[in-house]
């Protein structure tokens, strides 16, 4: 029955059959100088302007940024689910185990989505199909990619729903998305995303729509799954608290660029970019009292009219003449620490 599919049925990663994608030196995914733009009536919105990072096996990489910073677009470009047009990728590479996904044959690429790279979305209610039972939707992964028959696939779906701790999974496999609570829907989406045991999981604001006690449950589940399967996890969020709890490294995005890339402890202990610093200083902390919030003035820029030079300079407390004229490149300050600011040393030393 698998004769018509490109993939052969394979069992769990590491337990027998091999994927044709083998990580090179532990490095799973490399995004290299990626650009994405949207052609709209108002002009060209430059959503991503030269983003580079890599992800290793078992690593959690956080991409931090506010709305419009390009973090979700980055994820969509990696997954290959951008609407093109209006989106366009003028240059850049997304290499998975050394192979460029952007130039890959569309059919071949389709077979990476699910078994190799998969994604969890913010709003589970709109990401799930409202007219199919959840079990059917999870089982679809096995039918499509593994060529299983309906009953076997459904059986696997039940197992996955149990794995993500959905109570009474066998009874609820035929329920529809609207019959579940927000947290349970998110679990279903996680079940679907891990169904084929992907090497890379991208979680785009997985807990933003959830209450704080449910958020804790979901983050715990993601951490357990990652541990269990040694997945590389890209966590996209605006929540500095969540990042501090789970990430190994973090990239901070602003106006479609990485402004800082660093180990998580360094990033919070001494940010090297004024924007990161501003973010950390502007959030109230539940464990502090009498804090003064230092707000960042102004607004994030419109992506059709990104300020010249450093895109952050109109809001920056350190901005000098050079900042509006010359764009600072992302440079390595000390091994493993990157920042795109002319005055990073000053920020660090302050």
């Amino acid at each position: 029955m698998s004769a018509t599919t490109v993939d052969t049925p394979q069992e769990k990663r590491g337990s027998g059959s091999k994927s044709k994608y083998v990580p090179q030196d532990g490095c799973l995914l490399e995004v290299d100088d990626l650009y994405v733009e949207f052609h709209t009536e108002e002009g060209v919105a430059k959503a991503i302007n030269g983003v580079s990072f890599d992800l290793s096996q078992g690593e959690t990489l956080a991409i931090l940024g506010e709305s419009g910073s390009g973090k979700s677009v980055t994820a969509q470009a990696i997954m290959g689910i951008l609407d093109m047009p209006p989106a366009k990728i003028p240059s850049g590479q997304v290499r998975y185990c050394g192979r460029d996904l952007l130039t890959m044959d569309p059919n071949e690429r389709r077979h990476t989505r699910g078994p190799e790279i998969s994604m969890i979305f913010q709003d589970a209610l709109s990401a799930l199909n409202p007219v199919f039972p959840v079990g059917w939707q999870i089982a679809e992964m096995f039918r499509q990619h593994r060529g299983m028959n309906k009953s076997d696939a459904l059986e696997r779906a039940v197992g996955l729903m149990e794995r993500v701790s959905i109570p009474a999974a066998r009874e609820r496999v035929k329920a529809y998305p609207h019959q579940f609570s927000g947290g349970m829907r998110q679990r279903i989406m996680i079940a679907m995303a891990i169904a084929l045991d992907p090497a890379v999981l991208i979680a785009d604001e997985p807990t933003t729509a959830l209450d704080v006690t449910v958020q804790a449950q979901i983050m715990q589940l993601l951490a357990d799954l990652q541990q269990e399967r040694q997945m590389g996890l890209i966590l996209i969020t605006h929540d500095l608290g969540v990042v501090a709890d789970v990430a190994d490294r973090a990239c901070v995005m602003y106006a479609g660029r990485l402004v800082e890339k660093s180990e998580i402890l360094d990033l919070y202990a001494a940010p090297a970019h004024p924007y990161t610093r501003g973010l950390i200083d502007s959030i109230p902390r539940v464990d502090q009292k009498g804090q003064t919030l230092a707000a960042i003035g102004g607004l994030p820029p419109n992506l059709t009219r990104i300020p010249p030079g450093c895109p952050f300079h109109p809001r920056c407390y350190l901005a000098r003449d050079i900042c509006s004229g010359e764009r600072p490149e992302l440079r390595e300050l000390v091994p493993g620490r990157f920042a795109a600011c002319h005055f990073s040393e000053e920020v660090l030393g302050a």
């Binding site: 006690t213 958020q215 501090a244 402890l265 202990a269 950390i280 539940v286």
Partner: peptide, 20 residues
Amino acid sequence: LSAVPVPDPTLRGKREQIVL
């Protein structure tokens, strides 16, 4: 209170977590 993430990676694993 225990579920509120604190933006401080040095506290990771040291905070008391009551997961409901």
